[in-house]
Amino acid sequence: MDISVMNDAWIPDLSPTRLSSLVYNMSDAKVAELINTNSRLWRKELIESTFPEEIADRILRIPLAINPHDDLLAWSDEPSGEYTVRSAYKVLQSLDEDPSAYVLQTDYKGFYNKLWLLNLPSKIKITVWKASWNYLPLRANMQQRRLTNTTICSRCIVEQRR
């Protein structure tokens, strides 16, 4: 009974996944409070008066278990409901946000195959791979990934421009 109405992703296919930006009057409420414990039905009047119509409809379509049990978080992208690195990787691969990354990957596939087959120490192969993908921890890369906000060159003490 610990799933938070506001801070946990409990409504299927909702974007954004958390309600904290959409509903303001249920800051500490738990999902269990939206369920009538005797009838095991959603408290429809409360839900319809609290949430926007589209969200209320989504909530009311969530089937409830006949027998009460402790809440559990489930990973929606895996049939078992358990999070795995493999399923997260599949989700990331299915995103269409940066199709150029896939194109680059296929264009350089032969290069990478040859790189991994070279008789070199692994740390050199990995460094070449990181350099080819701009993964080296250079200030410009770190700033682009928002790992630092420093724009001053440590060598010449001059602010870098992008």
Score class of each variant (00 low, 15 high):
R162T: 11
K114R: 15
P121D: 05
T37S: 14
V23F: 07
E33Y: 01
P99H: 04
Y89S: 10
W116R: 15
S49W: 06
Y24L: 12
S87H: 00
I3V: 12
R155S: 06
D77F: 06
L104A: 07
I35M: 01
T127V: 12
W10F: 15
D13N: 15
S15P: 02
S15I: 15
I55A: 08
P121L: 03
P16W: 03
R146I: 05
E159C: 06
D96A: 13
Y89A: 13
L72N: 15
V31F: 00
D70K: 11
I3C: 04
L92V: 14
R40S: 06
D2W: 01
T17Q: 07
W133S: 13
D13M: 07
N38T: 14
E53I: 06
L104T: 01
I59Y: 00
I152R: 01
P137N: 09
R58F: 03
W116C: 08
W42L: 04
Y102G: 12
I35K: 00
D13V: 14
D13R: 13
I59G: 00
P99I: 02
T151V: 03
R155C: 07
T127S: 14
Y135F: 14
E48K: 10
N67V: 15
E54Q: 14
L34R: 00
L34A: 02
L120F: 03
T17C: 08
Q143H: 13
I62T: 15
V158D: 04
S154T: 11
W129R: 11
Y112S: 08
A140V: 05
E53K: 15
S132R: 11
M1Y: 05
L104F: 09
P121W: 02
S4I: 01
S100P: 06
E53H: 06
R43N: 04
M142V: 02
D13S: 14
K114Y: 01
N119A: 07
W75L: 08
E53L: 10
A56E: 02
K123V: 05
N113V: 02
L118V: 05
S80P: 13
E33G: 12
I126F: 04
R86S: 11
M6W: 01
V5Q: 00
L117T: 09
D2Q: 05
Q93P: 06
I124E: 02
S132F: 14
E45F: 00
I157L: 10
P68N: 10
L64T: 04
Y83C: 07
